[in-house]
Design a protein around this nucleic acid. Structure first.
Lengths: 220, 220
DNA sequence: GCGACTTTGTTCCTGCGTTCACAAGCGGTT
DNA sequence: AACCGCTTGTGAACGCAGGAACAAAGTCGC
């Protein structure tokens, strides 16, 4: 049992690998058999040199003078990212955003399947969204245990996000994607990743404003 | 007209300032008048030293031995981020995700207001979401001009995202938040920021898997 | 069979972000 | 009035990501 690439891969590289994977799938569907780092980098919106450095973490997988074989590279990245097997996810907080995510086709095609939707509001229990029925929170532990779900997505209001995170961790979920605007603390061995949509907009607004004042101030 | 802090603020710092702003609002509502960097850092989920360095970009705004005055600091960050005045935004692509964002209360409270919802599908035109009526795409330029919207949000399928981006830029939008899984190219002077939900999940899945194999491999 | 061209994989370097550690400053106390 | 403890603000070092340049290697043409 050799381990060809046991080295740790930088997180930034992992994120880009996911982008490359999608671009490669598109190329493959288009019937293309090989791509150069330049073409793939353009499709992914990155620098060619950086792309080659990212791929170097997987070991040599291209042919010099030719490029990369699309299907081979796609499968290799998919295997490294662990996309070969589908991942079971649970989603807590079936508001507007939660409903949208539950119904979002983009996840299923990337190997993520929601096996449980949960909400605290009795009015939402029993609703059917994206082929799943919304369940009460007290079924969370059972569903996680039965489905071996390893990923939990939190789209609840901020004030209950931490308690939901605790329950997810206790139920055995190993990774949490948090959309609530609060920093979560999780036990050792549980990864938490945060997405804050308001912050994205505020950064964008600031950059636009800054660009404006610098444009007015620079010429002086 | 002096410019006390005309220096450019790092983008990573701007993102955290938005988080501090939210934490400060919470503290203020809780009736707290002063906070130390340690307390605020804990509420924001960051390192205290880093927080002080972030705030140093705004100039001295704390009192040594005491801490920061909550309301003063909150107003100061809000002014720097430009949250004082509301920002007009348009949203293109009223699918599941777009509908959720249009209806998301978190934006309005942060100073972002959707003044136009657009979609290409005739079936969606005329729907009312979050107090707005979905309009056809050919009204986009007029609405942007009339409302002076400076931010556009793209939640369309990937294959039309670029053309939507082009139309937004042509209409005068200065900043674009892109949820479509494609890299967009925009003209000079237009900022594009990307949010890729699938990538977030895949990074999370990889980290969990990596933690697993390292846990199995390390003890040897 | 050989040469030239193309493209990869790697190495170096520059810049940025983050963290640690310490001096400066203010309030409260005696 | 002087001292002491607490907290800010800043300077320096570390580590990491990104970009450019170069050597290795394989293919295509002659």
């Amino acid at each position: 049992m050799i381990q060809p690439r046991p080295r740790t891969i930088p997180e930034a590289t992992v994120a880009r690998l996911a982008v490359y994977l999608r671009a490669l799938s598109t190329f493959s569907e288009g019937g293309r058999s090989t791509v150069s780092s330049g073409d793939l980098a353009e499709a992914a919106g990155v620098n060619p040199a950086g792309l080659r450095k990212d791929l170097s973490h997987l070991g040599p997988c291209g042919v010099r003078g030719v490029g990369y074989e699309v299907r081979t590279l796609r499968d290799r990245i998919a295997r490294v990212l662990g996309v070969e097997r589908s991942r079971a996810c649970v989603l807590v907080g079936i508001g507007n955003l939660g409903s949208a995510l539950a119904d979002y086709a983009g996840f299923g095609s990337r190997g993520f399947e929601f096996v449980g939707l949960f909400d605290a509001a009795p009015a939402r229990i029993g609703q059917r969204i994206g082929g799943q029925t919304v369940r009460p929170l007290d079924q969370l532990a059972d569903v996680v245990a039965a489905t071996q779900a390893s990923i939990g997505v939190i789209t609840t209001p901020a004030d209950v996000a931490q308690s939901v995170c605790d329950r997810l961790a206790a139920a055995g979920v190993r990774s949490v994607l948090n959309f609530a605007p609060v920093p979560l603390v999780a036990p050792e061995g549980v990864d938490v990743r945060k997405v804050d949509l308001s912050v994205e907009l505020q950064v964008l607004a600031f950059l636009g404003q800054q660009r404006l004042v610098s444009a007015l101030g620079e010429p002086a």
